[in-house]
Amino acid sequence: MFEEFTWEFIVGHLNYWLFIVLMMTGLYIVVARSNLVKKLVGLNIFQVSVFMLYISMGKITGGTAPIFPTDMKVDPGVTYSNPLPHVLILTAIVVGIATTSLALALIVRIREEYNTIDEAGILEIESTICRAENQLHGEAMGGRA
């Protein structure tokens, strides 16, 4: 397995590895931090690194941006990078900002309701409410529940 790790292979795959490191940093922020805004920033980092992963697949060494000369006389000697990932990622960026804004609105609403944007704080409040309700229902059931 290790004989394929030639110098050329390593240099050719460095870009993927860089984006994986970025992705995992974003994922770590999402999983380990309990502040909701920070989670969202982590999610953004994850998203952008996925975008860059896709774009880097469309790159051709020595190629140029996929824009023809304005007189449309295309020189067959010029290589252009693959425009299809660009198109897909353009759509994805706009959809990403839409979901981000929705999440931010949700955070504002959560803060209004719970007066905190910290996940641990929300869980605390929720469990207090739950305990109070259980006690209430328990008394109503005559101490059997």
Binding site: E8, F9, V11, G12, H13, L14, N15, Y16, S56, M57, G58, K59, I60, T61, G62, G63, T79, N82, L84, P85
Partner: peptide, 12 residues
């Protein structure tokens, strides 16, 4: 995955 920037990658 194919090497970065290679012109004979499946995507190309």
């Amino acid at each position: 995955m194919p090497n970065f920037g290679s012109a004979d990658a499946p995507a190309m």
